[in-house]
Design a protein around this nucleic acid. Structure first.
Lengths: 241, 241
DNA sequence: TGTTTAGAGTTAACACCGTTAACAGTTAAC
DNA sequence: GTTAACTGTTAACGGTGTTAACTCTAAACA
């Protein structure tokens, strides 16, 4: 079944819609990406977009999924490009790549990682394409951390250190971390938590009162959290103390 | 000059407006606090609110300032209530108080700390009441950390460890930290960064994929970041390893 | 005390938003 | 060649922030 003429045109306009939506996102923030605005920019009438997306939220969700995939692809390409055999260097590259992407695309980053829904009703279905794309993104990190672990297991807190409650929760995530022990998963989670927190604070300007250029601080923190994973200083021009 | 009858009534309706705005915030999120919605709830017509706030944004900004002050007052009251002479315990109390407030008031917390403007044009005037209230809030933490430092200076990275760029930026903030050295300010910033990141991730559900109950994780992390400030385990029922 | 002025509220209107219903034209399918 | 599905249209509803012009009341001043 080859794609018909109409199918090709449909796919084309669908891409155009998302392209315009993204352009509005970067130029005017999340609030600027609206159905009417997109339609206006395309020379269409607003209801026409409902042939492509069932609602405004669906458009934004699709945009989110695309952005996740783009970010994932960018980070994977960054890893493949210079395939350093040193896993520590690759993790360093990944973390810096994420920060660079966030700083280069603040509006997109804000849409992906800023102020998600508190979803008080827990059983919200998590099978949306955006969530799946987010899982693919997270998998990149998880896989690399698991590689680091299996290449050279790093010292980690014991089950007694963490306590039974935390251990039980961490152990439940072992399948996603290639069978790492709870203490190692704890450090992996610590790595992600601190990296995420740092980038969010920098991009969202929450660090502005303390540091006008957070680059050096980020570098120092990255070194610290890398140490916890048994990595020696991966920064090229930096001396390890 | 005593307040006239009209002045009292004005202050009263002003308070009512903000009360309704807050109620809408907690019930329906940030998007639900609208000029028309507030007016409807008060039995007023929308343009009437312009006698009290020059714009919708101004109302939200005023709400933010109020929430900052409320949070600050709550944390200060928490400290005064049981005035533990142990500064480590007080810092522990403060951090947990912030988390508790955030979890109890997710909508308010999201309004205060979620996805601020990236403000690309740096010279945005920061003399808004909301910003000032945020500074008063931050001062609570800074003051307590400075107290901890002066009571028992904790080991901190040296200037060589941090590098000249970071040291220069940190040194510039010394007046706000009671003359602490750059390395100590670095650790204070580290404390705030990690605490903030943790609470944001938990409240905004960004930690949900890894932990269904982040309480134990928070506790463990709080212990870690307290250690960096030379504090011994402040958790009541926890054994120090 | 009477006049004037400032304030608080109104109605009407403008431009934007997401969304739906009913309708027309084109293109693929049977 | 007819039918059905698809893509677009116009018109309309209710929602939003905001402004202009107007009333009425309460404070201020002579």
């Amino acid at each position: 079944m080859e794609p018909s003429r109409r199918d090709r045109q449909r796919a084309e306009t669908l891409a155009e819609i998302k392209a315009v939506a993204r352009r509005l996102l970067v130029s005017g923030g999340v609030g600027a990406v609206g159905l009417r605005a997109v339609a206006r920019e395309l020379g269409l009438t607003p209801p026409a977009l409902y042939r492509y997306f069932p609602s405004h939220e669906a458009l934004v969700t699709a945009l989110i999924a695309d952005l996740y995939d783009e970010l994932t692809a960018a980070l994977m390409a960054l890893q493949d490009h210079d395939a350093d055999p040193d896993l520590g260097a690759r993790l360093y590259l990944l973390a810096n790549g994420l920060r660079d992407w966030a700083l280069a695309h603040p509006a997109e980053f804000g849409l992906l990682f800023g102020t998600a829904i508190p979803d008080p009703d827990a059983e919200g279905h998590e099978d949306t394409p955006g969530h799946q794309a987010a899982m693919r993104f997270a998998a990149v990190f998880k896989a690399l951390v698991a590689q680091v672990w299996h290449a050279k297991p790093f010292p980690h807190p014991s089950d007694e250190d963490l306590g039974p409650v935390l251990v039980a929760q961490l152990a439940r995530k072992a399948p996603y971390f290639d069978g790492m022990p709870p203490g190692a998963i704890y450090l992996a989670l610590n790595y992600w938590t601190r990296l995420y927190g740092l980038i969010c604070m920098e991009v969202f300007g929450q660090l502005h009162w303390a540091l006008e250029d957070a680059g050096a601080y980020f570098e120092a923190q990255l070194f610290e959290i890398g140490e916890a994973l048994g990595l020696d200083c991966p920064a090229p021009g930096q001396t390890c103390s």
